[in-house]
Write a protein that binds this DNA or RNA. Sequence first.
DNA 1: TGTCACTTTCCGGTAATGCCGGAAAAAGAA
DNA 2: TTCTTTTTCCGGCATTACCGGAAAGTGACA
Lengths: 247, 247
Amino acid sequence: MKTIRKLGDVLRCFTAEEPEHSVTALSRLTQNSVSGTHDLVDGMAAIGLLHKIQRGRYRLGPLVATLYHTLEDSSVLLGAARPVMARLLADHGETLHLTMHDHGRLLLVEAMDGSRPLNVSPTVIGPHLMLHEAPPGRLHLASFSPARLQAWLDQHSRPGGAVISRERLVADLQRIARDGFDSGPVGEDADLMCLAARVLDHAGRAVAVLSMTVPEGRHARQPRAFRSVTIEAAQQISVRLGYRAAL
Amino acid sequence: MKTIRKLGDVLRCFTAEEPEHSVTALSRLTQNSVSGTHDLVDGMAAIGLLHKIQRGRYRLGPLVATLYHTLEDSSVLLGAARPVMARLLADHGETLHLTMHDHGRLLLVEAMDGSRPLNVSPTVIGPHLMLHEAPPGRLHLASFSPARLQAWLDQHSRPGGAVISRERLVADLQRIARDGFDSGPVGEDADLMCLAARVLDHAGRAVAVLSMTVPEGRHARQPRAFRSVTIEAAQQISVRLGYRAAL
DNA sequence: TGTCACTTTCCGGTAATGCCGGAAAAAGAA
DNA sequence: TTCTTTTTCCGGCATTACCGGAAAGTGACA
């Protein structure tokens, strides 16, 4: 299904930072011919996935909004997570994210903006991050099957490498998988501390990750408290999904 | 681009009422072979547009949420409409919709739930409606080019027909285009009164329709007031988009 | 206004691949 | 278990997505 993969590549080019693209820009980004990209983009605009503002200016289209509304109405995960996240936000005012992963990519399902005078921008966590670069992604990695993890590592730890020490990462992931929790900076930014906890569904499968990202200063004052409220909230979501802790 | 059209067809099968489908169900709905549908759905799940819950149970996927968040952050229309709609909701408490259209289909961009004891369900307006069945869609039709309207009519007024009187509809559309406003029931439901007004962008093009749907009883009491607040709100959105009324 | 540089759009030939029916595998139902 | 239903896999064929090149369109600049 080459067409669909390309379609996905094109869709992923549209981000909050770059919400608008021309045909040539997309063809460069996706490494395809201009004319081929034109056909693709034209089709996507025809079904409403993209919207053609002007000659050669494309943005995400109205179908995205339509689909999102049905997702919103029907997603058990969102339904379970929203109230818990809202409560967490009300209590602590820190920036929150709910993520999933998809074929080695981090997907942002829900983001809530912190309400404090000094708080973390909600855009720090997003699809632009490699999985291993921040706690949410590492938690996703930690729930990969061994074979899948192998494949991911083979793909990303090769040349000069995104992953510096493969052995180190694997060891970390084992610990993370055991705890269902990870914390650390986001990428290289030592001013941020991201705390991430696993969300499990009724069958005990890892379906998502809840994370709270706070300024390192505030975190340093009471690290254990932050850790426990994050884990606690993630567990509440899991329970709402039908997970029973003590089986 | 057959693949993309099919992809669109599949996506549109997912609604708030039917958020989950099996492969065979989708193949029936889209009138394609089971195996072909399987390939398609598999690919869509691979890029995250769909999510495979279990063997043969598909829902919309996390990519939809991700894309929506970037749309939300970047869409000038949403940015302009949201505050106006929120204000309108606060003032009157009636159910609101912001729609666009796409190749003869009604697309729901934003919906806000009424806050009164008796109010209209937000699901009455949606992609399931034919364009001519409710005021928002008629307003979209009214801004079609003559040729495009011809094509649409040819397609929908044929056999025993969705459109009963073609001449009547055309006359109505001319009036609607002139006023930038339409009101009437939603489909056959005479208990509902939907008031819809056109939203124009900086270049004076019709980009969306704002509508307010109220119980007929409340509407009958002060029809002119409802009409004017709806038109007023739509104009506010247009102005926020850069439209200048008195050119 | 005319020229130039660039981008988008159109178009036809061809290699690739999406599509289909049929078989196998998996999951329930009884 | 056995039977039924649904999903998944597979190979061959026809369709079509893809590409390069040409044409049309757009904006910049003098």
